[in-house]
Structure formats: structure tokens, C-alpha cells
Design a protein around this nucleic acid. Structure first.
Lengths: 223, 223
DNA sequence: TTGCAATTCAAACAGTTGTATGAAACTATT
DNA sequence: AATAGTTTCATACAACTGTTTGAATTGCAA
């Protein structure tokens, strides 16, 4: 391959446009215009529009996943194969949050693209996300090692809730800012990470006292 | 208006098709075929496709919101204007979770539609969701009354995390089932509600207020 | 240079989409 | 029964979509 110029111009233009305007109303013609490239080039270089989107998303998400695993591995090696649950959770949600939050005006195109991807969820991206399970299993394993007395079910729920808080905060960051009238500072990424990790840790470690949950008694009959 | 037959046939058919196949690949022609109705009827009765989608979503979401407020009001009246935080949170996430989870084969069309709406997020629905803030403020107010010593920031973060866990669990219920190899039982809706409420309560009460009730265990299956 | 493959290009294709139109069929009131 | 207003219908429209085509151009090796 000669210079890759056209190919990467398309990738850059597509990422920028999708980040700015969403997947919904960006056509191939918009992309090739932005990239100063012929319309047919997309199909020549990528095969189809969906494959272009998939390549964009895969590139960014394997970067995030690699960062996650790097942090996880570092923590586990330092702890002799067993890392504290807080550190594991930080490795899980930190890279994503750091990648997507932070001062708006200095958010990278990549970050804004990933936010879009998490909001709009088009078919090619959904397909890729479904293959993310193996990756999550590695974290479930590490969490099980950190909390050996905890049941698998609790581990999975804790993992689920940690991801929930991180992703939802990214997706709805604008609404949270508006709802709180700016009191919740989403630009302070490390504070957000700390909050998510703290709550997820509580969820995973609290009440290890064999207590049969009396939860159901409350309020089930508020009608 | 005469009989409303066409109008409601369109609404029913559209909700069913969107629930089954998503917004992405359901056309007006699909809908009118399913409803045994003429193509032009959609624009005649609803003005446009987007207004049809909006009406569907508004109907369902004001129903949920009404149920939420009903539970909240009942709890606050019973407690003399101040309800326990668990009950407030239950009123917040309970109706949504009950509406969207539960045994797949007995999920209502409405439930499946709302799940789609939470996954795919098309423009007309996003516009409506953005107007949901006033509704959430009522819950923020109730939470502030329940936890007067807590800062506004913490309240908003707790609210955000509670919604995060509920919505993410709905959105990714399939993935959680697969990840946990079925160990997480998403059909036991009341257990899911209890888990979300429990974690959100911990998020809101742990830390600064040592005098508060001891954190409860993750709602383990008590049977 | 010549030859050959890779790339670019303009143009067209084949479909689908939501929407508009104007006539026809109803419904209910007079 | 005649009328006016509403609703249904077949059909056309106009625009946009991703993709394909086949010829031109380019870059590089022999």
C-alpha cells in the first residue's frame, strides 16, 4: 500500500463528524466531502459504511481495553496475584471515564466519538460490544480473587453496577450538570472515578455478616 | 372524532414492531401493513413519523412517572412529609425496573418498547428525555428532606447512581445474564430493585454520617 | 520506456424513505 | 336526501441512501 493518505483521511473525517453530529445524520457523502476524497473511496478501502464505523470503534475500544488490562495487571503483580478491590474497580472504570470526561473544550475527537457511540448505539457497534464479555470476565476473575468469600452472583452484580455508574455518568453527563445546576463537577474526572469506585466497593464489601436481607419488609406495600 | 380505530391500530402496531425490531429498521410501510391501514393515515393522524414515536414514548413515560410520584407521595404522607431514603429510592427505580424486567415471555409490549427506547435513543425520544429534569428534581427534593445533613452534590450523585444502576441493568440485562452464565436472575425483579436500592442507599448514607443505620448487605436472595 | 497493479474518479444505479396530493368513501347533521 | 366535514385510499413525488461500475490516472518495477 502506497501512502495510506486517503484511508486515514476518511477515518479522521468520519470520527470527527460522528463525534460532532452523531451517527444518525452523517452520510458517506458528508464524510468524503470533509476528507476531500472521492465517494467511492470508502467502499474501496473499507468495504462498507458499517465496516468503517466498526473499524473506528474497534480501534478506540481496544485502546481502552488495553489500558484497563495494563492497570489491572500492574496492580495484581504488585499484590502478588491479588489486588485490592478498589484498585481493580479503578482499572475497570478509570480508563473509560478519563477517556470520555474532562473539560469539554479539551475533549479529544476520540473521546467525543466514544461518547456518541455510548449514546446512540448503532448496529455495527452493538455487534462489537457483544464480544466484550471475555474482556469483562477477566475483571470478574480478579474481583473473585480479591473477594474470595463473596458469591459469584454478588461479584457480577458489583461489576454490573460499577459499569453502570461509569457509563451512565458519561451518557448523561449533560443532564447531571443541568440537574445539579453545575454543582456536580464532571470536569474533575478523578473525583468522579473516586465516587464510582467508592460506591462500587461498598456494594461489593458491605454487610458481609451473613445477614439475611430484611429488605423486602420495607415499602413493598406502599399502595 | 368517530372511532379512533385507525389511530390506535397504528399506535399498537408501531409499538409492537419497534419493541420487536428496534427503531432502526421499522418503516412507516411496515407499520401500516401491520395495522392494516393506509400509508397516508400516519401522517394524517400524527403529522409525522417522529410525532408518532414521540406520542408512544410520552404515553409510556408519563405512566411511569405518575407511578413514581404516586409511590413517593404515599411514602412522604405516611412519614409526615419525610420518607426514609430507601423508600424514596424504591419509588424512583421500582416502577421502571418492574416495567422493564421480569420473565421475558411475559414482558408486555410496552415494556419491550421502553427497553428499546432506552437502548437506541432516537432523536424524538431524546428530546423528551431532556424534559424529564423537572420530574427528577422532585425526587432530589425528597431526598434532601430525608438526608438534610447531606450536601446537594452528594444527593445529586446518589440520584445519578441510582438511575444509572437501574437503567444500565435494563439496557444490558442480556449481557449480564450471559456474563454471569445465568447466575444473576433478572426475572426476580424485586431482588433487582432491592439490590439497586441497597447500593444507592449506601452511596447516600455511608461516610460522613456515622450515626446512620448500618449498611445493609447486598440484597442476597433470601429464600 | 513498457507493463501492471493499485488507486482515484465521475457517474449512475437500485432501493428505500417519509411525505404530499386529490379523488373517493364514509358519517352524521340538516 | 342533500350537504358538509372527516377519514381513507391509491398513487406519485422528491430526495437521499449506500453501493457499483468501468474508465482514467497514478506509482512503481522490470
Amino acid at each position: 500500500m502506497a501512502s495510506d493518505h486517503t484511508r486515514s483521511a476518511i477515518l479522521a473525517a468520519a470520527e470527527r463528524l460522528y463525534a460532532d453530529r452523531g451517527f444518525g445524520d452523517v452520510t458517506l457523502r458528508d464524510i468524503v466531502a470533509e476528507a476531500n476524497v472521492n465517494l467511492a473511496a470508502v467502499n474501496y478501502h473499507f468495504g462498507s459504511k458499517d465496516e468503517l464505523i466498526a473499524e473506528l470503534f474497534v480501534t478506540r475500544s481496544i485502546a481502552t481495553n488495553r489500558e484497563r488490562l495494563r492497570e489491572l495487571k500492574a496492580a495484581e503483580e504488585q499484590g502478588g496475584g491479588r489486588a485490592p478491590i478498589e484498585v481493580i474497580l479503578r482499572a475497570l472504570v478509570g480508563p473509560t471515564l478519563r477517556g470520555c470526561l474532562g473539560p469539554q473544550n479539551q475533549r479529544s475527537t476520540a473521546a467525543r466519538f466514544m461518547i456518541r457511540a455510548s449514546i446512540e448505539s448503532v448496529p455495527p457497534i452493538r455487534r462489537i460490544k457483544n464480544r466484550e464479555i471475555d474482556h469483562l470476565r477477566k475483571f470478574a476473575g480478579a474481583m473473585r480473587r480479591a473477594l474470595p468469600e463473596r458469591s459469584d452472583v454478588d461479584i457480577y452484580w458489583g461489576l454490573n453496577f460499577a459499569l453502570a455508574m461509569a457509563h451512565h455518568t458519561i451518557r448523561e453527563s449533560e443532564r447531571l450538570t443541568k440537574l445539579s445546576e453545575g454543582k456536580c463537577d464532571l470536569d474533575d474526572v478523578e473525583d468522579v472515578v473516586a465516587r464510582v469506585v467508592s460506591v462500587a466497593t461498598m456494594a461489593l464489601t458491605a454487610g458481609r455478616t451473613e445477614s439475611k436481607a430484611p429488605v423486602r419488609a420495607l415499602a413493598r406495600d406502599a399502595r
